[in-house]
Design a protein around this nucleic acid. Structure first.
Lengths: 339, 339
DNA sequence: TTGTAAGCGTTATCAA
DNA sequence: TTGATAACGCTTACAA
């Protein structure tokens, strides 16, 4: 690895001059010299030393993707598809803009603090943080910070976030279900906070808005594991046999529930209708094809990086809540019934 | 961000002494001083500056996960589940061992070279490299390098690789298919190189080993997009109506084909049997549950990091080809038929 | 046991 | 237009 100093002595100039042509400050150096130096730079395949640059400039050009561990792969079948696609898209956006992507997952705020300040991380894309941990993160990290799918109550104007219309998607799906004649609908989620809570509220409000009584909508909290989904599905069938539609907070739950229903000899959508959320790839693999709410993970990532880099490079950039649209994706898993 | 020098002047000692206690070289410093310094370190929440350490020690403690772009998310539905799980598991393994994970995807070897040397990356986990690009990578990067799912012909002893028994898995699956009475089997892949070629060879050899004539096995090359899978499935049905079993090189293709078959009114496994490879999560979501070959992506990542870190920390560590076992996962998508 | 000082590869200030 | 030089924060001989 050749250094600036070495190249300087090869050409017979000072390191400063070499540095200047490398950084394109060509107006500060004569064309002849610039060309001579450029030649050497290329001949020796010069690559700048990032540690040295970072030390001197007190930054890093790295963007950290930090995930709160409870959202992480492995203990949660719902997340890994999403996370994989997200990371892939983040990498592309980050690289495109001349930055580098470091990944770090932890629930320990002290660890995260130490990670980001040790590396002098220029900006963070944060996933899976509760309101509480988001507050802490914002306190310990004073540089640009963009959350993905965060919910921050009344503090929203203080946080940069890119999310989707969780509420509206669920509202419209529920409206659709009602329009198709369903009058007993069960909603399933593994939690009722943040985006999933918003989806639940959309569900509830659509029922209200349709003038239906509140006992038209049932709420089920399911465990993340496969067994938990099975239990949820069996519970609803036993407790509320009149339920004609199942609305899951995510496609992966919906798809896995479809398998379980099939095992029970229950036909979809003839015996019961199923709706999902996210429009994951499986949604169009499975039969019947899943009716769901479509969101774009890739776009989420791209927008998050775009906003983050804007904040890094333009100090006046303000925090912003960005809400991406969702669309109803009507396929074959919901049946029209006589009300 | 407090520095060693600042803490030194606070305690009234030299930076060296502070540095020593921070790095646990406590035998070189008196207990009283050590304690006093330790206290200040904690009081000020000292976090070391990675750029400075890296510059001084000429390393980085970062492990790069570099993907050849042709394997990357987005243009290939097969890969993103796998990649997501892999990255998650890599992150855990890397962090556990005191390293950091940087992600970089490119097909341009010059870009990759510049990335790794600029950051002084300590070691690389490489995914999706052809034999040719693997050779180039090995030439431009002289530090520890572990491939995932690479195939290196006769050069294997020169490369560290963690892969799976691609050949044996396909061999056993095909054996199983034959045992179940299937005599016309079609094999589908989007490529016939590396691991997928090995799977194809396992398929072919099992047919030979069973004493069947070579026209018992058909080979189909499909496009990666959904349309391509559809075309492949339709082709086989038209060209070889006697085919009773479809063996896909990956679960995602298998699952997507199951949907397409269902659209065609073809029942699985009654009309036709389907087998997959990988044991992706969808394999147990779908109905009938998919009979497949099980591999562990998480284990792949863990072993890869383990080997890589061993190579980084122990110079005598030799390149090694690690082949993880696969097991037949018999479920419900293959029917026993009368031969 | 503790401290001095050089060095890692850049950037940036200021002088020539 | 070019070049010295200090500085970034740390490690590491080597000296005291």
């Amino acid at each position: 690895m050749i250094t600036i100093k070495e190249m300087a002595s090869i050409v017979g100039v000072s390191p400063t001059t070499v540095s200047n042509v490398i950084r394109g400050k060509t107006k500060e150096v004569s064309p002849e010299l610039a060309e001579k130096i450029q030649k050497v730079v290329e001949e020796y395949n010069y690559v700048p030393n990032r540690s040295a640059i970072n030390l001197a400039k007190n930054n890093s050009n790295v963007i950290g993707f930090v995930m709160s561990t409870n959202s992480v792969l492995y203990d949660n079948i719902v997340q890994d598809f999403f996370t994989g696609e997200l990371i892939g898209a983040l990498e592309i956006g980050v690289r495109k803009r001349g930055y580098f992507l470091m990944i770090y997952s932890s629930d320990d705020m002290e660890e995260i603090r130490s990670f980001v300040s040790s590396w002098n991380i220029d900006g963070i894309v944060a996933l899976g943080f509760s309101y509480e941990s988001a507050q802490i993160l914002k306190n310990i990290y004073k540089k640009p910070l963009v959350f993905i799918d965060g919910y921050f109550l009344n503090d929203e104007h203080q946080y940069s976030n890119v999310g989707i219309e969780d509420y509206r998607g669920a509202f419209e799906m529920t409206q659709y279900l009602i329009r198709e004649g369903h009058r007993k609908i069960a909603f399933f989620s593994d939690n009722y906070i943040g985006g999933d809570y918003a989806r639940y509220m959309g569900f509830l409000d659509a029922i209200k808005a349709a003038g239906l009584s509140s006992d038209c909508g049932y709420k089920y909290k399911i465990e993340k594991k496969l067994d938990g989904i099975k239990k949820g599905v069996e519970d609803v069938i036993r407790e509320h046999p009149k339920v004609s539609a199942l609305f899951f907070c995510s496609d992966n739950y919906a798809v896995s529930a479809m398998g379980i229903l099939s095992d029970l000899g229950i036909k979809i959508p003839d015996d019961i209708s199923v709706a999902g959320y996210d429009d994951a790839i499986v949604a169009s693999f499975i039969r019947p094809k899943l009716t769901t709410v479509k969101q774009s993970t890739g776009e989420k990532a791209e927008i998050a990086v775009e906003k983050l880099v804007a904040m890094i490079e333009n100090k006046t950039e303000k925090p912003e809540k960005i809400t991406l649209p969702v669309t109803l994706q009507v396929r074959d898993s919901v049946k029209k019934i006589e009300a």
